[in-house]
Simulated scan of single mutants.
Amino acid sequence: MTDVTLVRGDITAQQVDAVVNAANNAMRGGGGVDGAIHAAGGPEVLADCVRRFPDGLATGDAGWTTAGAMPARWIIHTVGPDRRRGQTDPELLASCYRRCLEVADELGAATVAFPLVSAGVYGWRLDDAARIAVQTLRTVPTGVREARLVAFGDAAHQAIDRWIRTSRPATG
């Protein structure tokens, strides 16, 4: 079973096998988490994105690149749904986490750090984004031992913490 943990901090500094990037469809860098990851990883990340994703990536999907200069080995890029553009289906957001775990399994990654996908400029309410993240990470079968949710700010930390505490998995 995957251990879903929470830390407050900088996702680019996490000592994990893979870091998840909340990317845009073009896969050429951007703002927020995407900009920070590209800046920390260096030019190799963009070069690998261009090579691996010449036509970009679909919303809800995921794929990987090198992590460049970051401490992680890989970056798993996922494109979250943009509520401002009418992408309001929670299944699209859940798909991001599910696909990231599938990619992590393909890579053999045991520890993965996740941002709260779509909770920034893509307009998902923190509580909804946290609920979908925690529930999906806890229920999808995977070889990932630790899914670490990295909160950049207090509000995100509180939302994630609330869902981790209230949706504890059953023990037997």
Rank of each mutant, 00 (worst) to 15 (best):
V134S: 15
F53W: 07
A109P: 08
D55A: 07
R28M: 08
R28Y: 01
E106P: 05
R85A: 14
T65H: 03
G56D: 10
A151E: 00
V140L: 12
L92W: 08
Q15C: 01
A72H: 06
A13T: 09
G86D: 14
A39W: 04
E91L: 15
P71F: 12
C100V: 13
S167L: 12
G29M: 08
R52K: 06
E102W: 05
A40F: 09
C96R: 15
A130I: 06
V144Y: 06
A62Y: 01
G30P: 06
M1I: 02
A39P: 00
I75P: 00
G63P: 02
A72P: 08
I164N: 12
V134T: 13
A26P: 00
A130D: 06
T78S: 13
M27E: 08
R52W: 01
H77P: 02
T111W: 01
A130R: 05
G172V: 03
L116N: 13
Q158R: 13
T111L: 12
V45E: 00
L93T: 07
V117N: 06
R138C: 13
L107P: 01
S167E: 12
P141I: 10
N21M: 04
N25L: 11
R145D: 03
R84V: 13
A155P: 00
T65V: 04
V144K: 06
A18G: 05
P115W: 07
V50Y: 03
A110R: 13
R165A: 15
A159Y: 09
T111S: 12
G35T: 15
W74T: 09
D61G: 02
T171L: 04
R28K: 07
P81Q: 09
W163L: 04
T78F: 02
H38P: 05
M70V: 12
V50W: 04
R162I: 03
Q15Y: 02
P115G: 07
I11W: 09
Y122V: 01
D89W: 11
C96Y: 12
G30M: 03
R8I: 14
P54L: 07
R51C: 03
H38Q: 05
R85I: 06
D3C: 01
R138P: 11
A104S: 09
A94L: 12
D34Y: 00
I132S: 01
T171H: 02
L6E: 09
Q14Y: 10
A104P: 07
V16S: 03
G108L: 13
I164D: 12
R162G: 04
A13Y: 01
A104T: 10
L101E: 13
A72L: 11
L92Q: 14
Q14A: 15
